[in-house]
Amino acid sequence: MAKTIKFNLILDGHPVRNLEGLQAHFSIEDMLMYYKNGLLLRWLDVREYRSQHDAVKTIQKTTNQEIISELIKIFELEMEESLIEKAIAIYAYQEETRWLNEEYQKNAFQKNQIILDYHSGYDALIEHMIENMDNMALLKADALVLEQDYLGLFILDHVALFEKLKNNAPKAVFAVLTRNAFRPYWIGETANDKIYLSIKNDLLPIDTIKEVLGEDLKIVKRNTQAMWDPIERPEVEVMVLRIENNTFIKNAGEFSEKLGATDVNNQFLKLKGLEYQCNDEKLELLYMEV
């Protein structure tokens, strides 16, 4: 009788040998790929996880969202719906990009046609952001694709693009600023002066932040009694939009750090986790998840 050969799944860059490893390194993009190409079922079979194997085999769902929801239940995981939506949107773009690359190779498109399609893809992506102007999960996914696939066009077009998004999809400006590659062009010392001034004057007033971001804005109002209050865990990356004078923030677990209003405001400061210090419950801390 032939010996069963065991193999590992690679999830989020980690080799996974058992269910505990799968739960620790669960990656939506990787799991969708393994589910669709059949490797997940083979892995469960050779590792003799019978109940999970049978449950995966009987999944009747067709959309990526439904499939992932079923896999999360089967493997007893807890994930926020916004994270699932963002990862699935990214996966969809990756699938489309892979398909286009295969089509280019298969049909040997001419160079000028590829360039035309590249520009068309960029234009379509920006229009997709405008069409989904209120959906932060999709806007973040679009911003990631913009960074990965169209950075060169962004650099050439960053002034006109800012005006277009500010006027038609202002929430998208905040999504774009979550990506490090774009920030030097729109904010900070190296940014276009006109853009940076417009962001500070037109998008960063408190009422405007609240109106534009809506439910995607997180507001903290509490008296921490001069103690550091943990707001977000270290694995949650945030972008702080505004704090009041005499209040302070820092990265989660950074004992020597203490950032005040002059360090934070107008900087779109990104932190890993968030701790907060405030002595007045009327004051507000405004931030969003990256």
Rank of each mutant, 00 (worst) to 15 (best):
V220Y: 05
G152D: 14
N192I: 03
V159N: 10
I155R: 15
T190A: 12
L146Q: 13
N168K: 04
K210H: 11
G214W: 13
K210L: 14
L144G: 04
N180P: 05
V220G: 02
T178K: 03
V159E: 12
V220W: 04
E215C: 04
L144D: 03
N201G: 08
W186D: 00
D149G: 08
A160P: 00
K194C: 09
D149L: 15
L203Y: 05
I209M: 15
K200R: 15
N167H: 10
F182Y: 05
K171D: 07
A169L: 11
L153Q: 13
N192H: 03
D157Y: 08
L217A: 05
F182W: 10
P205F: 10
K194Y: 13
V220N: 02
Y196F: 14
V176Q: 00
N192D: 15
A143P: 13
D142R: 04
V159A: 12
N167Y: 11
K210S: 09
I199A: 04
V173H: 01
F154R: 01
A169Q: 01
L146G: 06
E215M: 06
F162W: 02
S198E: 07
L151F: 15
L165Q: 04
A181H: 03
L177R: 01
I195E: 03
K218V: 13
K218P: 01
A181E: 12
N167V: 05
N168Q: 15
V145G: 08
D157N: 06
V173D: 02
H158T: 04
R179E: 15
L151V: 07
E211S: 11
A191V: 01
I195M: 10
Y185A: 06
L161M: 07
G214Y: 11
F162P: 00
F154M: 10
D202W: 11
F162V: 03
L197V: 14
D202R: 09
G188D: 02
K166Q: 15
L197T: 14
R183M: 01
D216Y: 09
I206Y: 06
I195T: 02
Y150I: 07
L153Y: 07
S198L: 12
A181M: 06
Q148Y: 08
